[in-house]
Design a protein around this nucleic acid. Structure first.
Length: 588
RNA sequence: GGUCCCAUAGCUCAGCUGGAUAGAGCAACAGAUUUCUAAUCUGUCGGUCUCAGGUUCGAAUCCUGAUGGGAUCACCA
């Protein structure tokens, strides 16, 4: 649309002897009820023309029509100049742009970006909140790759700490040597079982201590179980061989479980970081900060930074005993990541409950003068809520990721069989289809909403398969593929069509927007933009499909043209869904 | 209490840097298949864009305040 913007700039200069910048020309989509594809709002130019909006619009429209070949017609309604672009332009877009192999292939921008996501704790299985995190992170990585970045997907595994010791301790005390093999439980679920077990027994002890007259605070500190867990953590830090063995064994089980979940979800990583390797990092940065005078030491020799001038508080960065806190290791890990990859941008996919933490973290790194600090970005996404409120793992109100996904496959199976869609499918093919559709429904459901917003999930109301959903879009793709194979479509055939109906033109208009949509999604870090785009595209195609017969087109050349348009639509739908991490079936 | 985020149809959500009569899906109702997959399409119903001010030719969008909801303010991670 740049040629229109430039033409408007020229029109204003010719008509009103005023120079305006291209960025001040505001073009928008023409509303459906009016003729045209793009609309110029003329109110801003009435000052220059010293005429009413209608007359100004007419003058500009007249200029455009006379001087720009691609502009076929215009109409003016109040302050709106609706511009109709010639069919030849849209056909040119189809032939010379959309149908090319390199359509929507954005060249490398030479920049490297790291996307850190997932970052699970190894004491319990993944739940719905993690699912949103994983899908967002993976999709964002896909989008950034498509937008020309060199992307590194990183997973920072929280594999140590008191919470890990809790499940280890509970297993040692109550587990009777249970293993994934002996119990038939997935490794991560096995660890989670003992984590819950610990919490229950711990609460029991607290209650008892309170009955014996201790305050709740005292009881929480004095319960034998928590003391034992703390002792285990010390043993771990000292490298005690028995504890290390137990730790290695249980984490090994958990990783096997996670790998299976990741595989089902279809996400992957280029680089794993483990907190057991990074938790001691950051102390040299604390040293650096003290030297630079960014940090200061209190009498007890704990180290702090004063952020009150930035509207934040004082923040501890190192304990008096010289041990790290959360932010210490995050400072160190940030440096480590940069040393490893020298990336231009680094994105942390982490829930919005940590907004404050990341604000502080990034600010500290800026104050330390890290050149790369301005490339840090916290993709802060909203929590997933149930109708009953927030999910709480200890209270058992979480929606387990593995359970959820297998529920989705089951629902997909039922729906597909009910629709009688799998005649002539082999068993393997059926299973693959149920997986594709089930994951498509779930992923689309979670990705279509703006990441920033919190998301409501009702486990009792199964995810829809009709309307604004993943399966709707998948179905559109399968249907196109069916027509193409039925027609024996030959992609190499060339064709020029002279006439265009409105729906065909609309479809081309939507296809044309794909590259800009990728860029927009990348800059705003939002898969939702892709999700909403591909839905509109599929909807437009379905309308076209109903209005126009392809096989029974009025002429052979028209048939070939519609096949081309269909093939292009299928390709863009498939690519866009791929950016969301969603597969599209050839038939369903 | 301080700080931050959110509020659009009964429900779930779109609405780009301010622009036309605020859009989809679900739910409800009425239709469409002798023809390419009806997981589709068409139509009807449904709104004081939480409220009150302000800026502007023009505000769901920007500013201020209020109300309601959420998060956070740990020498937890």
């Amino acid at each position: 649309m740049n040629f229109i913007i430039e033409a408007v700039v020229r029109a204003i200069k010719e008509l009103y002897q005023t120079d305006i910048a291209a960025k001040d020309v505001n073009l928008q989509e023409t509303r459906k009820e009016f003729e045209g594809q793009v609309t110029l709002v003329t109110f801003p130019y009435t000052k220059l023309s010293r005429k009413g909006p209608e007359q100004t619009g007419t003058e500009i429209g007249e200029y455009l029509k006379a001087n720009v070949g691609e502009i076929a017609a215009y109409n003016v309604i109040k302050g709106f100049l609706n511009i109709s672009i010639a069919n030849s332009y849209w056909l040119g877009q189809l032939n010379n742009n959309i149908l090319r192999d390199d359509f929507a292939v954005i060249p490398s921008n030479g920049k490297r970006v790291m996307v850190e996501y997932s970052s699970p704790n190894t004491n319990k299985p993944l739940h719905l909140g993690h699912v949103r995190n994983n899908l967002l992170g993976f999709s964002l990585a896909q989008i950034l790759t498509a937008a020309g970045y060199d992307v590194v997907k990183a997973n920072l595994v929280n594999d140590r700490g008191i919470h890990i010791c809790k499940s280890m301790l509970a297993w040692r005390e109550f587990g009777n040597g249970e293993t994934p093999e002996s119990s038939g439980l997935k490794g991560d679920h096995l660890a989670g079982k003992y984590y819950v077990w610990f919490d229950k027994a711990y609460k029991q002890q607290i209650t008892e201590l309170i009955e014996e007259g201790q305050t709740e605070e005292e009881a929480k500190k004095n319960a034998p179980l928590i003391k034992e867990a703390q002792r285990m953590l010390q043993q771990w830090e000292a490298g005690d061989s028995e504890v290390m063995n137990l730790w290695n064994t249980m984490n090994g089980w958990v990783y096997e479980g996670f790998d299976a979940t990741y595989k089902t979800m279809g996400v992957s990583f280029d680089k794993y970081y483990y907190e057991s390797n990074t938790y001691l990092l950051g102390k040299d940065i604390v040293e650096e900060g003290l030297e630079k005078g960014v940090f200061f030491k209190k009498e007890d020799s704990s180290v702090w930074i004063d952020l009150t001038e930035d509207g934040l508080d004082q923040k501890l960065v190192l304990r008096a005993d010289g041990t790290s806190v959360y932010i210490t290791q995050d400072l160190g890990t940030a440096q480590l990541k940069y040393d490893d990859y020298q990336m231009d941008e680094s994105i942390y996919v982490v829930g919005n409950e940590q907004d404050y933490h990341f604000k502080v973290l990034f600010l500290i790194l800026q104050k330390l003068g890290k050149s790369w600090a301005q490339g840090l970005y916290h993709l802060s996404y909203g929590m997933v809520d149930l109708p009953s409120g927030k999910m709480k793992s200890r209270e058992g109100t979480v929606v387990d990721a593995d359970d959820l996904m297998s529920d989705m496959f089951e629902t997909a199976k039922q729906q597909t069989e009910a629709a009688g869609k799998v005649d002539g499918f082999g068993e393997d093919e059926k299973d693959k289809l149920y997986h594709t559709i089930g994951m498509g429904a779930l992923k689309y459901f979670l990705l279509k909403v703006d990441p920033k917003k919190r998301l409501l999930f009702d486990p009792n109301e199964s995810v829809d398969f009709q309307g604004h959903t993943g399966p709707f879009i998948q179905y559109t793709h399968a249907r196109i593929k069916s027509v193409l194979s039925r027609a024996g479509y030959n992609a190499a055939a060339t064709h020029t069509q002279a006439e265009l109906d409105a729906i065909e033109r609309d479809l081309i208009v939507w296809l044309t927007k794909f590259p800009d949509t990728i860029t927009e999604a990348a800059t705003s870090h939002s898969p939702a933009i892709i999700a909403n785009y591909v839905y509109e595209l599929a909807k437009t195609y379905n309308k076209f499909y109903h209005e126009k017969s392809i096989m029974q087109a009025e002429s052979e050349s028209l048939k070939q043209f519609r096949l081309m348009l269909s093939a292009a639509s299928a390709k863009v739908i498939s690519k866009a869904m791929n950016l969301l991490g969603i597969e599209v079936p050839e038939r369903m």
